[in-house]
């Protein structure tokens, strides 16, 4: 039983990072935006949820569902503002702006005691269906919940990737100038996708709060952003399945270091080792599998949309379109 709960915890954490990686793939992978703000949207979503759904003195005590919706909306609004200022500039500026934004969110959470209880954080947060599920197996249930949500994220992102919108996004990533030269308004599109991706990350923040049952600024260091990017690169940038696999592999490997038997006085050293192992994994994968575990797939549009041509090159009698041999 204990093992099952432990594994469930691992799966839940892996699933949370997998959702983050899929969200990042929407703008970082498919659209090619250099977004270093992941942990910022993550924190903003988590705090928005907590401050709306937790009871007084910290929260408003509204229903959980409203908290989840708020996490998406508030994150979306703030990223709209960031995107509006930074997406017009060169991609390097987006990188710096998003990184700075994430730092500011954490610093605000640390310093505004009246709002967030500062560094101490807010404890004992409620989890969904906590009243119905026995505490001893709650983590098993929660892992299922995370996997279900992950399935939803995957379905959504994959639908987007396979659609004309996905094609258009990849065109922007490949060449902005050429995309502009065929008459597309790329700024609007980038802004929309940026906001979508950030909101997706914001909602994952709720899952993280449920997982931890506490919220504190030290959960939101920039290492989270780098872990998610590493997961995406490991799995294969642009590929949603790859994002999932990359996230699980990375989280499992990182958590496995917990089993290295070391005396407690060396435990800080161990935290460093965890980063070191991620880094080595990344270098090895980039060396031997530069595209990641699963490279971005190129599905033929013909298959996706069931397109077919007649087997002869003829001018149709009605003067209609010319069909060509396949």
């Amino acid at each position: 039983m204990e093992a099952l709960v432990f594994i469930s915890g691992l799966v839940a954490l892996g699933g949370i990072y997998a959702m983050l990686a899929i969200s990042l793939n929407v703008n970082g992978g498919m659209l090619g935006l250099w977004d270093l703000g992941v942990v910022g949207y993550f924190a903003l979503g988590a705090y928005s949820y907590t401050l709306i759904s937790t009871d007084a003195p910290y929260g408003l005590g509204l229903p959980m569902v409203i908290g989840v919706i708020a996490s998406a909306v508030i994150t979306g609004l703030l990223s709209l503002f960031i995107g509006f200022t930074a997406l017009r500039l060169r991609s390097e500026y987006l990188l710096i702006t998003t990184f700075a934004f994430a730092e500011i969110i954490r610093i605000v959470a640390t310093n505004e005691d009246w709002l967030t209880n500062g560094n101490v954080g807010i404890f004992g947060l409620e989890k969904p269906f906590q009243e119905v599920i026995p505490g001893s197996i709650y983590m098993v249930f929660f892992a299922g919940l995370v996997l279900a949500a992950l399935g939803g994220y995957y379905f959504f992102a994959q639908r987007l990737a396979d659609s004309p919108m996905g094609r258009y996004m990849r065109a922007i990533r490949e060449n902005e100038q050429v995309t502009q030269s065929i008459g597309k308004e790329i700024f609007k599109t980038k802004l929309k996708v940026f906001v979508l991706s950030s909101s997706m990350v914001g909602v994952v923040g709720c899952f993280y709060v449920w997982y931890m049952s506490i919220i504190a600024p030290n959960m939101f260091y920039s290492t989270v952003t780098f872990t998610v990017w590493t997961a995406l690169v490991l799995g294969g940038i642009g590929n949603n399945k790859g994002a999932i696999i990359g996230a699980f592999v990375l989280i499992f490997v990182q958590e496995a270091t917990r089993f290295i038997p070391v005396p407690t006085e060396y435990s800080t050293l161990l935290a460093g080792i965890r980063q070191l192992i991620s880094g080595m994994l990344l270098i090895l994968v980039l060396r031997f599998l530069p595209q990641g575990f699963i490279a971005e797939k190129f599905k033929s549009v013909e298959r996706l949309f069931n397109l077919e041509l007649k087997n002869s090159i003829v001018n149709e009698p009605d003067g209609g379109r010319r069909n060509v041999a396949g």
């Binding site: 990849r170 065109a171 490949e174 060449n175 050429v178 971005e296 190129f298 033929s300 549009v301 013909e302």
Partner: peptide
């Protein structure tokens, strides 16, 4: 260069 990682159709 066009869109290198898109197919000709795309």
């Amino acid at each position: 260069v066009g869109f290198p990682k898109l197919t000709v159709l795309e």
